[in-house]
Nucleic acid binder design. Sequence first.
DNA 1: TATTACTGGGTACAACGTACCCGATTAAGG
DNA 2: CCTTAATCGGGTACGTTGTACCCAGTAATA
Lengths: 263, 263
Amino acid sequence: MATSQTGAGDPKRSSELLWREFEPAQSRPGPKPRLTVEQIVAAAIALADREGLGAVNMRNVAAELDVGTMTLYRYVPGKGELLDLMVDAVSSPGEDEPDPAGMDWREVLEHIATGSLAFYGEHPWMLEVNQRRPVMGPGSLWSLDFALGAFDDHDVTDREAILIITAVWGIATGIALSYLIQDAPADQGGPVSTEEEWWEVQLPYLQRAMESGRYPRMARMEHEDAWNLTAEDAVRHALDAYLEGIAPRMEASRRRGARLRPE
Amino acid sequence: MATSQTGAGDPKRSSELLWREFEPAQSRPGPKPRLTVEQIVAAAIALADREGLGAVNMRNVAAELDVGTMTLYRYVPGKGELLDLMVDAVSSPGEDEPDPAGMDWREVLEHIATGSLAFYGEHPWMLEVNQRRPVMGPGSLWSLDFALGAFDDHDVTDREAILIITAVWGIATGIALSYLIQDAPADQGGPVSTEEEWWEVQLPYLQRAMESGRYPRMARMEHEDAWNLTAEDAVRHALDAYLEGIAPRMEASRRRGARLRPE
DNA sequence: TATTACTGGGTACAACGTACCCGATTAAGG
DNA sequence: CCTTAATCGGGTACGTTGTACCCAGTAATA
């Protein structure tokens, strides 16, 4: 296995591990484990944050924890499952997470979008993970529940809520993919060309392409400032327009003085 | 190199290959090449379409063409560059591509979004490629130029045009990532759990999670229809709302009776 | 015809995931 | 307290990848 896909392993083992907090450990014969799953996941995340997803291999994670490589397999069935655990762990709420109850729908959705950017800034390797199957662990469920908080005071169908959450998440992730993935530490090995070098080399080819007349609209662009956008600029624009688009519907669906009742 | 990243190789070699049509071959000593770069790229794309990105390795591509593995290295510096070429090749215009000149801004942007979905449906492996650096070849430039056609009749700044294109592209790609990547042929090897199996196994855990009271909003959802969304549904919703949001600006910027002049 | 650059592709190695194995350890039963 | 058996740490080794290196065959040029 070489690629980095979620849901690659045995779903039963993955689920057991994701929800491990639900079955407390019981006393068993044999030596005390030296590690915990949490330690392994934390080490793998630290490694990914620091050196990129390419550096996350079983040998490196084991070295990070100063244990033998094969020891990891006592705790985690394989690399695929470890990746699932990493994804769910970073999706879990932080210390200072606000409570969506009491926030306006706009605030919640904006918090999701800007929070996603900050999130991908901290964990750019998350943009490289192929979330082939949704990882449904405690952290991911929490994220979804948080997002649903946008509609606490509104009468929208479940379907509509999902559509809106999907759209906001899609905007944030789609744009983060364009702008942030390049900040992730790359697998080194080849000629470690910097961003400047990269463009410098391409420039003459692009120049000739522009002069070829095959890209008339591009050729007419002022290159200077148009491309100097940040992910924040792009998300702000897209989100503002999108929220403007759904605002009438949201305002129409607002319930009168309702609060989330934990019935 | 194990991961699938663009821009991984030598940028000079990549550019030369991307723009190979610009330097015509000249007569040289030595045997005639048995292959062309086009053939190799086409074989790799066919393989990726059919068996997934995981099946694209140098040995398989060579077997597809009935040549020795190392022969490929006569034409392509390495797998990273081959991936760049694949990405640019599938981004090139098809036979029946409409001309954005003469289309309304809405039509162009909608065509980009729905076209993207169809595109990812045909080449789901594109969702797995980490576009760490933009591949600036003939195909990608053409896509950009096409998108800029949305503004032929409008007075918008270059910056604004890029913002809008980025938003539409981000919406389509972000949503495709959620909905379509699961349709890509998976790297087989482990327990090849189907979609149903996957959910069946997770269900009891999710049930317990819902009963735990930690996800009150999720627990209150009607699961039946809310999750049965297609990528088309999600994109239509997001794009409609977004276009609604930028419509005032676009209408305000419309030029009077202007047409694209190939000056 | 001789030269020379280029072609096909076999061999081999390094990095990876992980199957398999063995000895050391420790809770539970007597 | 001692036996038993499950569990732990982790070394060895193999299969799969990308690709460096090499050599022999080939064809345009001089």
